[in-house]
């Protein structure tokens, strides 16, 4: 910013507040990471460095299954959500603005605004009637539920990518002898791709750490990693949970860094 006449960072006390909030945000996470390398059983007393909790957590069959289930759900839900979000973003940005546009945005972003608990209860009721009717008990319900609330997270980066891109690009492509399919393949798709990948990763991370909706929708024995951890912590705080959390944190940091790199404006 060239204009330095007003700089919020120079307000008195601002730096202190910012630092305090930073510490509040990151200190607990730092503690969690540190204690995942604790040699002892106790999560409050440091007894020396050890990697024992990582293989220990991995040896636990329940952890393995929950991890596998979480990855399955997050992958499927993210792909579904990104596909839907891409189509929605193409529909809302790659043509002339129409009336009702803001209503469409509102509809797409609805899961961000409706309290999660409401969505959870609604899905529970909706799916249980389907369960009764069809007898199907599989992971499909969780995948669909996750896909639904991941759509806005996938939609936002895709829309940001497409917005402000010249609307006449597709027209130019048609003018240069491209069929509809060729235009999609050689112009629209390459343009939307970085946004779609960013959306996919954001949706994946969002699905991976969901608790509320999962708790309501899952059938018995369908614990995901977060709901498994919640159940563990209710019993006793275990360093094993610290280890799993640290790994999840690592995965998230990697994905979000990639997201940042993809959505960064090229200069």
């Amino acid at each position: 910013m060239a204009d330095r006449s007003f700089d919020i960072a120079r307000l008195p006390g601002f730096a202190t507040i910012a630092v305090t909030i930073f510490v509040l945000l990151y200190l607990p996470i730092a503690m969690l990471v540190i204690f995942s390398f604790n040699a002892g059983d106790n999560v409050a007393i440091w007894e020396g460095f050890s990697l024992r909790w990582y293989p220990e957590a991995w040896a636990n069959e329940a952890v393995k299954q929950a991890t596998w289930r979480s990855l399955q759900i997050a992958t499927c839900a993210a792909i579904i959500a990104t596909t839907v979000a891409t189509m929605a973003a193409l529909g809302t940005t790659r043509r002339r603005q129409t009336r009702g546009q803001s209503f469409v945005y509102l509809m797409i972003n609805q899961p961000l605004m409706v309290p999660e608990i409401v969505t959870a209860v609604a899905l529970l009721i909706f799916f249980s009637s389907i369960k009764v009717a069809t007898g199907y008990q599989g992971l499909g319900y969780l995948i669909l539920a996750h896909a639904a609330f991941c759509i806005p997270f996938a939609y936002l980066p895709i829309r940001a990518r497409l917005e402000g891109m010249d609307l006449s690009l597709e027209t130019a492509s048609a003018d240069l002898y491209a069929t509809r399919w060729q235009t999609f393949r050689h112009v629209t798709l390459p343009l939307v791709m970085p946004g779609a990948i960013a959306g996919l990763m954001l949706a994946f991370v969002t699905s991976l750490d969901d608790v509320v909706i999962t708790l309501f929708v899952k059938s018995a024995g369908q614990d995901t990693l977060p709901t498994y951890m919640l159940a563990q912590i209710r019993r006793s705080v275990s360093a094993e949970v610290n280890a799993i959390s640290t790994l999840l944190l690592l995965l998230t940091v990697v994905l979000l860094t990639a997201f940042f790199l993809l959505t960064r404006k090229r200069t």
Binding site: S168, A172, L176, L191
Partner: peptide, 26 residues
């Protein structure tokens, strides 16, 4: 018939050479 657009409408993801060759490729 080809058009030169007021906004140019160049494909931002393609190089200059690929932009120029686009019509022939299609």
């Amino acid at each position: 018939v080809n058009t030169v657009f007021q906004s140019y409408a160049l494909f931002p993801h393609l190089s200059v050479a690929d932009n120029i060759g686009f019509g022939l490729k299609m």
